[in-house]
Amino acid sequence: MKATKILALILATVLALGLAACGSAQSSKDKDGVIKVGIVNNPPSESGYRAANVADFEKVFSEANGYKVSTFYSLKNDEQLNAAQQFITDGVDYLLISAAATDGWTNVLENAKKAGIKVFLFDRMMNVDESLFEAAVISNMEAQGKMAVQWLLDQKLPEYNVVHIQGAMGSDAQIGRTKPLDEQFANGTMKCVVQQTATWDEATAKQIVESVINSGEKFNVIYAENDGMAKGAVAALDEAGITHGKNGDVVVIGFDFNKWALREVLAGNWNLDVQCSPFQAQKIHEMIQSLESGGKLSDKIVINEERYFDCNNITQADIDTYGIGD
């Protein structure tokens, strides 16, 4: 009995000492001027986009740039919330979050605020009060759609008969990229031949275009809401002997800036590809540096600048710089 008591006492002492040791280690690092960052993101396996996104953050938030980074990946909101809470307990200086779902974050962000931790959102917005985060660097899917539609209008085609292949219904990208085109359909500048979802699936996109070709209806634009579906659509055109791209009968538009897709644009097989930039790290890095040097941030919502390339202005260098994947 006595032995166990002594053992317990020793254990308790060791634990206490250990904790103290941890505590002192933490405070000493703070003095080095290293900025501690906790990143909560979706796993790189989610998509090629996410893989490029994760790689971008690994590159910018490096030890060489003066950061000490802890990262957590999950597709599940509750796991992300736990991880964010853990980062707050660990006492990071900045918390960067790309949320799996938009809801449920208020509590955690309030805790961060109480602990004096500054929060940045990237890639995805959440349903929280603006006072709870410093800034959000996000893509504007609707702006991407507008860019494509505006480019299409600038081509001054004699008529616009559009085959519109949508992504998974209800996803951010689908809603944003559909809206500007729907407006054109509504005001009559463009005619909707078919509007159908292929749920981001290449083979389904091919079948949809096949069915349009079989129906014998005229069309001269394919607006596919991502690169894969544009590739599927082009496969159907090729099998039916319909020319496409530069000097072709059908204008092909894709989204996302995969390197292979940009190569199709460079080769003149497609007409246009619009970027969905996974590169938000540099912007956040700049904002953190400005905060560290006592500056203030001007905007809460920072729209990540995105661009497009068409078959007339693209170069190999552009593909190397902006393309994602391989």
Partner: peptide
């Protein structure tokens, strides 16, 4: 082979 592309997320979704 149909598309000439492998997308592990959507292949035969």
């Amino acid at each position: 082979c149909r598309i000439g592309l492998i997308n592990h997320e959507t292949l035969l979704l």
